[in-house]
Amino acid sequence: MSQNNPPKDQQTSSHKKTISLPISRVRLIMKSSPDVSSINQDALFLTTKATELFVQHLARSSFLNGSGRETNSLSYSDLASTAEETETFHFLTDILPKKILARDYLKSLEEMQEEDADF
């Protein structure tokens, strides 16, 4: 893993390379979109770089917003709350649903039914 790499190596690689995610994989994901016919090299590079910035931004915002600062950790629920509370991350709510206990879900279901009955 990356921890085993000498720090010197990491430094030189970050100097030489401006991106660390594989462009080929990003291209494959982009191409999986049915209406995309072709992508030029600069657009490919920019999307790859943007994805890296996005990962950093999502991790950082979730860590700062969540409860993680006391426990020095980043958990799934921190991410789910960020997706729900931050407008720019709203598009993630489908894949980052908030986890709730079945007990609570049943309770809210009951409440909803009661509300319906009122009308």
Binding site: V55, S73, L74, Y76, L79
Partner: peptide, 22 residues
């Protein structure tokens, strides 16, 4: 900072969705 395995997987999936959205 300790990042749970579940959180890492979620961020990775979020990144793929980001690529598609962009």
């Amino acid at each position: 900072v300790n990042v749970s395995k579940e959180a890492r997987r979620a961020i990775s999936q979020a990144a793929s969705v980001f690529v598609l959205y962009a």
